[in-house]
């Protein structure tokens, strides 16, 4: 049974900073799963990671692994592997020696650590580069070595800080797929810090969304996508049309009044002020008879399978993704409807 990493009430305010970098971060990381810490830059996710790693001392709060309290344990004693955004490979050592480093400081003999290092390099699929220096390697190769180095000493937890952000888009996609395979095989408790929602959703079993030093919401990717707890989460994960509105009672029951019309409120909504979200793909072009509202098409971007429409209803702008094969017959007053269940309302 794998031990659980639990973080309670972590706080950190940097000297001379007006606002806390991290406040009251509490989370239990699912053992053997990948948790993505997601947030815009400056949201405190890297600071949180550094405190979990022991590289930064929290102002308050605790880090425990199983029943072991790590709060006062030095980083070098935590047995957590870290992959840094900048790779941080040792320039004076070869790829193999970099991977061996964690074994070397643990006093493992040269033959054994060489065997393990080559094994790790096989795992990240670059055994042929073992004797190269970091300066002679590409960014992607360096990242593989950084990963092999962090895994070689068999850490209890793997921490990754924006590991792919320094790479170009194509390489990033490639490595993301490979990371997914590798982390899946390892079954290691992993915290993956990123500002890229695509990366977070494809790699993370669980997402923790951070905003201004606080956890905004956590859950599975599809959960958060469908049921965001705040307009921030709604807007941060994928595209969303978010509105302020009001739930009111009329003859037929509870309705939501939004700038572009009135909808029957979904179950769970209550009377009073509310905000509502409609994902662009939940808006479809309707037959004129079925139209719930009409909008003017301000622009249309063909994106292959679907076309993104920028729509205007009075003062309100809307995004809609419609299948590319649907003809836009009347761009001045396009008949539209929201799919059933496509309206999400929170009070």
């Amino acid at each position: 049974m794998m031990a659980t990493l639990t973080v309670k009430g972590l706080n950190k305010t940097y000297p001379q900073a007006a606002e806390a970098a991290v406040s009251d971060f509490t989370h239990t990381f699912a053992p053997g799963r990948i948790t993505a810490l997601l947030g815009p830059s400056g949201s405190g996710k890297s600071t949180t990671l550094a405190m979990i790693a022991g590289l930064l001392e929290p102002d308050s709060g605790s880090v425990t692994f199983g029943d072991e309290d790590l709060t006062r344990v030095l980083a070098e004693r935590r047995e957590f592997g870290i992959v840094f955004q900048s790779y941080a490979l040792f320039p004076h050592l070869s790829a193999r020696e970099n991977v061996e480093f964690g074994l070397r400081v643990r006093g493992i003999d040269a033959l054994e650590r060489r065997r393990r290092a080559l094994e790790m390099l096989e795992l990240v699929r670059i055994p042929q580069l073992a004797e190269r220096r970091p300066a002679q390697l590409s960014g992607g190769e360096q990242q593989r070595i950084a990963l092999a180095r962090a895994l070689a000493f068999k850490p209890r937890v793997l921490l990754m800080d924006e590991p792919l952000s320094a790479l170009d888009a194509k390489l990033r996609d490639e490595l993301r797929a490979e990371l997914s395979r590798l982390l899946g095989e390892l079954g290691l408790t992993t915290i993956y810090v990123t500002h890229d929602q695509g990366e977070a959703m494809s790699l993370g079993h669980e997402l923790v969304i951070m905003h201004r030093g606080r956890i905004e919401q956590c859950g599975t990717p599809s959960d958060l996508y469908r049921r965001p707890s705040s307009p921030f989460v709604a807007g941060f994960l994928g595209s969303a049309n978010v509105f302020e509105g009001e739930c009111a009672q009329n003859g037929k029951g509870l309705v939501v009044r939004l700038p572009f019309g009135e909808w029957r409120a979904p179950t769970g909504a209550t009377l009073g002020r509310c905000w509502a979200m409609v994902r662009p793909e939940q808006i479809e072009v309707a037959a004129p008879a079925d139209a719930q509202f009409h909008a003017r098409v301000e622009s249309a971007f063909f994106l292959g399978g679907h076309t993104r429409l920028h729509l205007r209803v009075g003062e309100t702008t809307l995004l809609a993704d419609v299948p590319s094969h649907v003809p836009i017959v009347s761009p001045e007053a396009l008949p539209l409807r929201v799919r059933d269940g496509g309206l999400y309302v929170q009070n």
Partner: peptide, 14 residues
């Protein structure tokens, strides 16, 4: 680069 020392630290080096 002080990050190299942080890396070494995370790898268990005192």
């Amino acid at each position: 680069d002080p990050r190299l020392e942080l890396a070494a630290c995370s790898l268990g080096a005192g």
